[in-house]
Amino acid sequence: MTVKELSDRFDVQVVAGEKGLNRPIDGGYCGDLLSDVMANAPQGCIWLTVQGHQNVVAIAVLKEMAAIVLTGGHEPDPETVEKAGVEGIPILAWEGSAYHLTGLIHAAGVRNSDG
């Protein structure tokens, strides 16, 4: 599944980084402690977080992530939107909980190597 397909299928709004919408999603990760995400998120994953600080984009670039989803109605900082545009990392917005969206993505068949 690509980021665009996920966005269309589950009605997740795209708020930045549109040029990366064709990236394939190779797994998933949830976390708001960025040091943990940097250490443990799988390469190419989609990342669900409430953290809108600009550092999320740097970590997504480092991990070659497919996209970042800000859950629970959290919004990215203006610098985050700008950096996501430059790097081509899509940022999506989901009003509901990370738990709900994670369930939908997992049920759609997006898995990590450990499940």
Binding site: L33, L34, S35, V37, M38, H53, N55, A58, I59
Partner: peptide
């Protein structure tokens, strides 16, 4: 500190 410290929370100092 992992929680509430800038490195733990944001990964690095911007």
């Amino acid at each position: 500190r992992p929680a509430f410290g800038i490195i733990g929370k944001l990964g690095f100092v911007p």
